[in-house]
Design a protein around this nucleic acid. Structure first.
Lengths: 209, 209
DNA sequence: CTTAAAACATGAGTAATCCTCATATTTGCA
DNA sequence: TGCAAATATGAGGATTACTCATGTTTTAAG
């Protein structure tokens, strides 16, 4: 980033839109940003272009987003909210090892499909490591998702060490995200193999020794 | 990045220094960049600052590096060369499962130690996902390192499917790098637990079902 | 040694981009 | 109706990656 002194603060709306009009405009801004990221990636996304495509002035953009990263962050947060709901729902009913294997495999497929199909999600989670706020959002998201796993594991293996379960679930989840990122950056066929290998590896770990 | 039209080309020296004098100057430039990255991270590193600290003009900097990322890339490449030598040496003599477990554990410890101790390495491999050239360097490095593992595995399990071994080794290696990145971004104690968990998980996978 | 070409060095200037802010307009409400 | 708060605007400030015309040093052939 240039033009900014590498600000380390967390990104958050400068001012929440309180009127109907401005709420609609903020939506348009996010939609424009999303389209531009899909086309060129968030790095190449220009604030002027976002404003123009949303049909607002550059000043209006900064009325609701303190800086460029805040826009990306806002989009990323929506994905986390949506996916957490999906994950929670998928894992909620699991009560035995067979069910866990089924649900986990399903989740991995869904995630992999999203990474393959959604250029915005792809772009955002790829750039995750470079941006502090995004990294923290992903970490928090990952922990939250791991919690759902942990809840299931504690039901299935009530005698296991809780700390070990925590560590395992968190690691498995993060490995999954890393595996996805890797899979989409190689040839499709190899990517499929890698995801399948991850699935086996993770399940073996989750289902106990 | 601003001021540049999001160039997607690979970074490479604009001109290789051929004289003694310029070779020394290039070394000073890299040393200056390394120090600045250690202090503030590669994102906050300013080209003018690199030049100043190296005691050269901004023009000289661009005489040998086509752009900012090329400097980071050059530093990253040195790490890969060094680490490949280390990995190759550690894995070369392995001839049984016990030896593999020993060598692998040792390598993980070395890597983790480097990530903890070397802010430059930490910074560079963290930002890896955002920069295309860096991502490709890391992928190539990871594949090369996985090759060493594959060679060992083929010796230990000559009957196994070669493609499956390739996939496993590559995945395990990438998971390792992801685990390190994760480990250094959480509290030290939890990081240690995560690395240990990864070690167990990876070894179980490498040593066969 | 001479000399021409190649390599190297310089830094003021260019261009691109993020973001601010003074000013104008619209909306909600007493 | 009128006023305060919210919203809208876009020219311009500020920063920074990178260029290029010009000058200097090194190399090596004659």
């Amino acid at each position: 980033m240039e033009g900014t002194p590498a600000n380390e603060q967390i990104a958050s709306p400068r001012r929440a839109p309180s009127q109907q009009r401005s709420r609609e405009r903020v939506e348009r801004m996010l939609a424009a940003a999303s389209a531009l990221i899909a086309e060129q990636g968030s790095d190449a996304m220009r604030m002027g272009e976002v404003a123009e495509r949303a049909g607002v002035s550059i000043g209006s953009l900064y009325q609701f987003f303190p800086d460029k990263r805040a826009i990306v962050w806002a989009l990323a947060e929506r994905y986390t909210v949506e996916s957490q709901a999906c994950i929670s729902a998928t894992l909620a009913g699991v009560s035995d090892a067979e069910g866990l294997a089924q649900a986990f495999s399903e989740l991995v497929d869904i995630y992999y499909g999203l990474f393959l199909a959604e250029p915005v999600m792809r772009d955002i989670w790829s750039g995750t490591q470079a941006d502090k706020a995004l990294r923290e959002l992903e970490l928090a998201d990952s922990r939250a998702n791991a919690e759902f796993l942990i809840a299931v594991l504690k039901r299935l293996r009530p005698d296991a060490d809780p700390v070990a379960l925590d560590t395992t679930a968190f690691l498995v989840w993060q490995m999954g995200e890393a595996a996805m990122r890797l899979a989409i950056s190689v040839e499709r066929q190899e990517g499929d193999r890698l995801v399948a290998a991850y699935k086996r590896m993770a399940l073996r770990e989750l289902l106990g020794k």
